[in-house]
């Protein structure tokens, strides 16, 4: 590279310290760099399915419902448990366990009495129409860093509904791909 080209490159590239001017010039350099690197963690709603902990982005969740009356829909798709009435809106309730191969049978669910007390319906926002998924228990909201996501290990099971895996200390969160999980 010729020195002239170096000069051009030098002028072309943006340097934050040039921009920030004198105000931050005296601040310790190292800290600032570290700050720039830090990522804002995303919030996820975590819940359990057959003892495993799953998570979906909190912005994809519309609300969490207690189990209400569920109406079976004959001849609907295989993973549809039924229809729920959410304040007058008729929305489908999906089973993700069969999709994730955690279970082989669609649960027979007609009302609150058919499932354990901790079970909830997580209502997900979706372009194709909002839909609920049945979960065993809602654990809470966790902050996870997207950059630290791992790809799900290939265990020879259905993985297309899993977006990735996140760790936080001891805990392992399996991120659900909402779009895939409902298909």
């Amino acid at each position: 590279m010729t020195p002239r080209f170096d000069q051009l490159l030098d002028r072309f590239f943006y340097r934050p310290d040039e921009d920030e001017g004198p105000y931050l010039a005296n601040a310790p350099r190292v800290e600032r760099a570290a700050h720039a690197m830090e990522e804002v963690p995303e919030e996820f709603l975590s819940f359990s399915l057959e003892g495993e902990t799953y998570a979906v982005p909190i912005h994809a969740v519309r609300e969490i419902l207690k189990i209400t009356a569920v109406t079976e829909i004959p001849r609907a798709a295989k993973n549809v448990i039924g229809l729920i009435n959410v304040r007058g809106e008729m929305l489908p309730l999906y089973d993700v366990k069969t999709r994730l191969k955690l279970s082989t049978k669609l649960p027979q669910l007609r009302g609150a009495g058919d499932v354990p007390r901790a079970a909830r319906i997580v209502l997900l926002k979706d372009l194709e129409g909002d839909a609920g998924i049945l979960v065993d228990r809602v654990s809470g909201v966790v902050k996870l860093q997207l950059s630290k996501l791992e790809e799900a290990p290939d265990l020879g099971v259905e993985r297309s509904a899993i977006a990735g895996i996140a760790r936080r200390g001891e805990d392992l969160f399996i991120l659900l791909d909402v779009e895939q999980a409902l298909s």
Binding site: I73, R75, N85
Partner: peptide, 22 residues
């Protein structure tokens, strides 16, 4: 029925009865 359930054979829609069941 919402978009995902459209095309369910033999069902045109849903209504609610007194007990809020669809």
């Amino acid at each position: 029925l919402s978009g995902r359930l459209r095309g369910t054979p033999g069902v045109s829609g849903a209504t609610e009865l007194g007990d809020r069941r669809a």
